[in-house]
Simulated scan of single mutants.
Amino acid sequence: MKLSRIVTTLLSGLPVTLTLLVFSFILASVIGLGIAWLSLRNNVACYSVARLYLGLVRGTPPLLMLLLAYYGLPKLFLLVGIDINDWSKLFFGIVGLSVGWSGYLSEAFRSAYLSVDKGQYEAALVVGMNSSDAFWRIIMPQTVFIALPNIENLVIGLVKATFLVYVIGLFDMYSAATDLSNQNQGVYQLGIFVVLALVYWIIVLVIEWAFRSIKKDYQYITG
């Protein structure tokens, strides 16, 4: 089998893989920030809710989270009279991955925030800066910079987890590879999956380059 055919077939599933990656990361970040905010509040109820959520999410395998989203969400929505059974499988894939990764991102945000010396915030207030400016101009830039390495690792992990959507019937790069292998009775299976591994590796290299650029620009702006 020609290499060009393998690459073309695999890349036919790339749009779904990238869509899953981008939107799952965005939604997981939003949820993660919300959970981090709850866990940092000086409120027992908020803290308890956050820890319960984190325990459930981090204790559930990503594959199972996808299945729960795909089979469970339609039943939950039906309880309030909304039928989402005909919604795109891509939606359920994004939700499943987002919930699964939100717990890890939440801890990345929380730990980064706690790593910043809060004495800087107090010093900013002393010199006349208001609390809002002190938070956004002193605390948040450092929090983001500290969190970047952990966020990078989580994004790379999310890239490798996108292939799990095959369990709900989404056609991504992994599904394209398995379909191509099955069409040829597994004769070219090793070559197909080696090429697939290389494609994932290239995506990871691009992500690593992007984060290096972000860190460099961030240091230049804040430095």
Rank of each mutant, 00 (worst) to 15 (best):
L90R: 01
L38A: 14
S115Y: 09
L78I: 13
S106G: 08
D117N: 09
V80T: 09
Y104A: 09
A112L: 10
V44S: 15
A134S: 11
W37V: 05
S102G: 09
G72C: 07
L79N: 04
E107Y: 08
S111D: 09
G100M: 11
Y113L: 08
S106A: 14
S106M: 04
L105A: 15
G93F: 00
Y104E: 01
L66D: 00
D83I: 13
L105G: 15
S106R: 02
S106N: 03
L64H: 10
L54R: 00
L90E: 02
A36L: 10
G55N: 13
V57P: 04
N42Y: 08
T60P: 03
R41F: 06
S98W: 00
V80K: 03
L63A: 14
A36G: 14
D86R: 15
L52E: 06
D83Q: 11
V126S: 15
P61T: 11
S115F: 12
L78W: 14
K89P: 10
D133Q: 07
G128V: 12
N85M: 08
K118G: 14
A50T: 05
R110L: 11
T60H: 02
L54V: 12
L38Q: 08
F92H: 02
K75I: 15
G93L: 08
N85W: 06
S102P: 03
P62L: 12
A134N: 07
L97H: 02
M129G: 06
L125H: 06
Q120N: 13
I82Q: 03
P61R: 12
C46P: 10
S98E: 11
A124V: 06
R51Q: 12
A124G: 04
L68W: 00
N43D: 07
P62W: 00
N43T: 10
N43I: 03
Y71G: 06
S39I: 14
N43P: 00
S111F: 02
D133M: 12
S88G: 15
R41S: 13
V95M: 14
G72P: 04
V49E: 02
Y47C: 07
L38E: 09
V49N: 01
Y104Q: 02
N85C: 09
I82V: 14
G100D: 06
L54E: 01
L54D: 01
R51C: 07
L125T: 04
Y104V: 13
R41M: 10
I84C: 12
S111G: 08
S48T: 15
G100P: 05
K89E: 06
G119I: 08
S102H: 03
K118Q: 13
D133T: 11
A36D: 01
P61Q: 09
S115P: 03
Y121A: 05
L79F: 04
E122M: 05
M65R: 14
L90W: 00
Y121I: 05
V126H: 06
D117S: 09
R110M: 12
R58I: 13
L79S: 10
G93P: 04
M129S: 12
D117A: 05
L105D: 03
A108Y: 03
W37Q: 05
W87I: 07
G100K: 03
N43M: 05
S98D: 11
Y104C: 07
L68T: 14
L68K: 00
Y71Q: 03
A123H: 08
G103L: 13
A112E: 02
A124R: 01
L105N: 11
G93M: 04
C46E: 10
Y121W: 00
L114M: 14
R58K: 13
L67Y: 01
L114F: 04
V99E: 08
